Simulated assay, not measured.
Amino acid sequence: MNVTQLLVSIIDDDESVRESLPDLVKELGFSAEAFSSAEEFLASDHVDQTRCLILDIAMPRMSGPELHRELMRRGRPIPIIFITALKDDTVRPRLIEQGAVDCLFKPFTDDALQEALSSALRAN
């Protein structure tokens, strides 16, 4: 598997995350696209090419978990790594139970992201 061909889409309403996280993902050897909302991602032509989503949980309008359910409803089961600034220990197990690959709490380490991406792409 050639990782340079794998697209990781990042959806977060926080501009600083959209500016920094794609650089890190690219350093790890993947292609990356950033979106400011779930709706922007769904309207893009990147849905079918995306091999993994890094998805913020709490966003205006459509939340990360709502986007996850919408993708499943559309028959597009993209592996998802949720990210959140919310420090709620019940969130991670619940999201993983619903099919997420992982849930990382901001700020997370490069190693934690790399491990989650490896898991997501093995699942794909």
Rank of each mutant, 00 (worst) to 15 (best):
R18Q: 12
I80P: 01
N124I: 11
R74E: 11
R94T: 07
F41G: 00
E19Q: 15
A112H: 03
D102F: 02
G75V: 09
I10N: 04
F35A: 13
D45M: 04
E40I: 14
R61I: 10
R69E: 14
K106N: 14
F108L: 07
C103N: 03
V17D: 03
E40L: 12
L113F: 07
A120S: 05
T50E: 06
Q114N: 15
E15M: 12
N2W: 07
L95M: 07
K26N: 11
D88V: 02
G29Q: 08
D12A: 12
L6Y: 01
E33S: 13
F41L: 14
A38I: 03
L28I: 14
L71T: 00
P107S: 12
A112D: 08
G75M: 00
I78C: 11
L86H: 12
T4G: 13
P77I: 06
Q49G: 04
D23W: 07
D111H: 15
A34H: 10
A58K: 00
L121Q: 09
D45R: 13
F35D: 00
L104Q: 05
R51Q: 15
L121M: 11
V47W: 06
E115D: 15
D48P: 02
M59E: 06
A32R: 09
S16M: 09
E97A: 00
F35H: 06
R51D: 06
P77D: 14
D56P: 09
S119L: 13
S119K: 15
L95F: 01
L28Q: 07
T50F: 05
P107L: 11
R73I: 00
D56Y: 01
S37R: 03
N124M: 12
P107G: 14
